[in-house]
Design a binder for these strands. Structure first.
Lengths: 194, 194
DNA sequence: AAGAAAAAATAAACTAGTTTAATAAATTAT
DNA sequence: ATAATTTATTAAACTAGTTTATTTTTTCTT
């Protein structure tokens, strides 16, 4: 029996649903298991679902011309992950999304989302608030990227994702911060001997 | 007589309104003139409106501990500007917003926006799409901040804001890019002698 | 139109972060 | 459990971007 508590609680933070609405919403979700290192989406593919993470950790990243990964976003429990641009405009994705841990998600397909938004327009509000919050969080990150030193960004990262430091490798963290793994190692040493 | 064509056309890109709806929407807007160098919002203040720019140019920025400005966003004609976080959560703003040119906006207050979203729920969809697009654009900028050189970011800036290079000072551009004015000057020279 | 203020250019010394390479430690796979 | 692979550490040479200072150019103000 699947547990929908987490996603329903998440929705319930922003909009109120009655029993039938909850059941309809749940009926549109598809449960999926993504093994560590498996891809949810690759560059150039069409991202056909948005994904609510109930367990595990996903990363959204790009590859530059030298084959170096740059992590745009982490996704953990109680978050949505996906490529909204590809999903919503039916265009090839600019990102790779894969799993850093064995991960479980509820997927909603484009057709089902459209159905949902038409049937229960309150969900427009839910997604509006979600994107709004994501926008605000990204604005903060942009500010830090253009005005903080690498050390300050690392310390902020630890605040923002307290659980992640133990769960993922330093390499992933450095990629998210926009620095090399070597330099992050140097920073950590500098911080600890202080 | 004020001209509402630009804002109505903008709304019309995403949702369809009938005559009464248009009139109701317009009735909620307040026209405001912001002189160059005047502030729409300061750090710690409550941002009481979202602002649709019909003419001019706004910037959203922070000041770091050394008093250096860091530009989070530019706003030009046909764009919304504001601090959604402060606006929507009634909390003090983290940003300064001021005018780089004499600017005209249509403002919508929080009360009026709430009224609008209740009266014409389609506007939830409009704002959802707006935030979604803004989110996607920011994601792209984050990618460039963590993976591009300053020169690449500058060239991308020229693509993204072709009109702005002539309209604002190099200092503003360097601040947006996250580099010093001195270094931008060096970059431009390097690019031109090539 | 003149004077004041701000922005841009240039140069030189500097530093935060990179690169490369070698070694050690931790994870993963068989 | 062992071997293989990946990740982290350390060090040293390097470079992209900063800082400070001076001069020139542009813009703003009266």
């Amino acid at each position: 029996m699947l547990n929908y508590d987490l996603i329903l609680k998440n929705v319930n933070k922003h909009i109120q649903l009655n029993k039938e609405e909850k059941e309809f919403f749940i009926s549109l979700l598809h449960h999926k298991f993504i093994k560590r290192k498996d891809f949810l989406c690759r560059l150039g593919e069409y991202s056909k679902s948005e994904n609510f993470i109930i367990k595990g950790c996903l990363r959204t990243y790009t590859l530059d011309e030298n084959g170096v990964e740059h992590i745009i976003a982490f996704g953990i429990e109680d978050w949505w992950a996906g490529d909204p641009y590809s999903f919503l405009t039916n265009s090839p994705s600019n990102y790779y999304i894969d799993a850093l841990e064995d991960t479980e998600v509820f997927q909603i397909s484009k057709e089902n989302l459209e159905n949902l938004l038409e049937t229960i327009p309150k969900f427009e509000r839910y997604y509006r608030i979600l994107f709004q919050n994501a926008y605000v969080a990204q604005q903060k990150r942009i500010n830090q990227n253009i005005s903080f030193s690498a050390e300050q960004r690392y310390l902020e990262f630890l605040q923002k994702f307290p659980s992640l430091e133990q769960r993922i490798s330093q390499k992933q963290i450095s990629s998210y911060l926009g620095i090399t793994p070597v330099f992050l190692s140097m920073l950590k040493k500098k911080i600890s001997t202080r």
